[in-house]
């Protein structure tokens, strides 16, 4: 019950955050140079056709009126037409978002599993060559942008070895499952099209790993650091004195509290994946929303820019709420704190 109230409060705050975000993005998008309608229709399109687009987007109205119209339509679920793809932005997002979420989930899973695993190993073998290798690897991972990994993987596994597919989500000849979620892996599992599931996983390896390495390294470093700190705590010494097996101490008493900072950062890293996937999507011709958003920005596609940023904003908020919930389960002090504050 108390958790429910806590969530409702968070959602309430989130509405103000989104409103603020929408105003900020709306203004920034509109002060960029260039007439978006003219840009969309081309320099030689007749003026009446350009004017029709301006009117349909209320660009002939004052800025505050434009915002009010936009907000009204947005609440109704009408994001307007993309000047870039010439379709409803909602249709575009429906098509592009699942591809990005699929990529982000795959990368997020790699980040979480291997980041925590490597961090735990590093902490367990602290100050040995294993720890040193993981730490140096983590530094490299954190400071290297994902597109460097993407280019490296493409050249190594696509250009030289020819063992992984270079682009796209599915190989030619593999039937795409009917769209249910838009994520081929889930749609394939639901409809029993396991060939498509396997093929998509195969296509996900290069972009997914390239995108995950930075976050994974971050998670490994944080997990190691937290576990190393906790190892020095008195309660661990007490548990050892009581003869509790090392494996139980590591998993139950050391890892669980050490995961709290990792989970918090993992949530942020996961949300950032959604927005930062741009170059990776571009290199692997992955038809995702991050690439769509950047393309829209370069073409001053106002409706698409705002819709993409709002969707990203919602994703950040949702992920943060999930992180809060997970952390509250990992850390009883937070749960108890919330209860006391009631």
């Amino acid at each position: 019950m108390r958790m429910g109230i806590f969530l409702l409060k968070r959602l309430g705050y989130s509405i103000f955050v989104l409103l603020g975000l929408s105003i900020l993005v709306f203004i920034i998008a509109r002060i960029m140079p260039g007439d978006p309608a003219r840009l969309a229709l081309g320099p030689r399109a007749p003026e009446w056709a350009v004017q029709r687009v301006r009117e349909s987007m209320y660009l002939d109205k004052p800025l505050y009126a434009q915002y009010v119209y936009w907000l009204r339509d947005f609440v109704r679920g009408d994001f307007g037409e993309s000047l870039f793809t010439r379709r409803d932005v909602a249709t575009d997002i429906k098509e592009f978002l699942p591809a990005t979420i699929e990529l982000a989930l795959f990368s997020g899973a790699i980040m979480a599993v291997f980041g925590i695993l490597l961090g735990s190993i590093s902490a367990r073998y602290s100050n040995t060559w294993v720890d040193n290798v993981v730490r140096v690897g983590s530094y490299v991972g954190v400071c290297t942008p994902s597109f460097i990994f993407a280019v490296f993987f493409l050249l190594a596994f696509g250009y030289v070895l020819h063992i992984l597919p270079s682009i796209g989500r599915l190989s030619a000849g593999v039937t795409k499952p009917p769209v249910i979620t838009g994520m081929i892996i889930f749609d394939g599992l639901i409809t029993g099209n396991f060939r498509a599931v396997g093929d998509t996983l195969w296509h996900l390896i290069m972009p997914g790993v390239a995108l995950a390495l930075g976050g994974m390294s971050q998670e490994a470093r944080i997990t190691r650091s937290a576990m190393s700190d906790n190892l020095k705590k008195d309660y661990i010494a007490a548990e050892r004195a009581q003869g509790i097996p090392e494996r139980v101490i590591n998993l139950r008493y050391l890892l669980k509290p050490s995961l709290i900072p990792t989970v918090s950062i993992l949530g942020l890293d996961f949300a950032a994946l959604l927005a930062n996937a741009f170059i990776v999507e571009l290199i692997f011709n992955w038809p995702g929303m991050s690439r769509y958003g950047i393309s829209a920005m370069l073409r001053k596609d106002l409706n698409a820019i705002i819709a993409v940023i709002m969707v990203m904003g919602v994703m950040f908020i949702v992920v943060n709420i999930i992180v809060d919930i997970v952390v509250s389960f990992l850390d009883p002090r937070i749960r108890l704190g919330a209860e006391r504050s009631k």
Binding site: G158, Y159, H162, S166, I167, I283, F284, N285
Partner: peptide
């Protein structure tokens, strides 16, 4: 018609006759 113009992607695809 494939929607990319990334140099490294093009080179990889050309080398593999994709």
């Amino acid at each position: 018609q494939i929607g990319t113009t990334e140099a490294v992607t093009i080179k990889t695809m050309m080398s593999g006759q994709e």
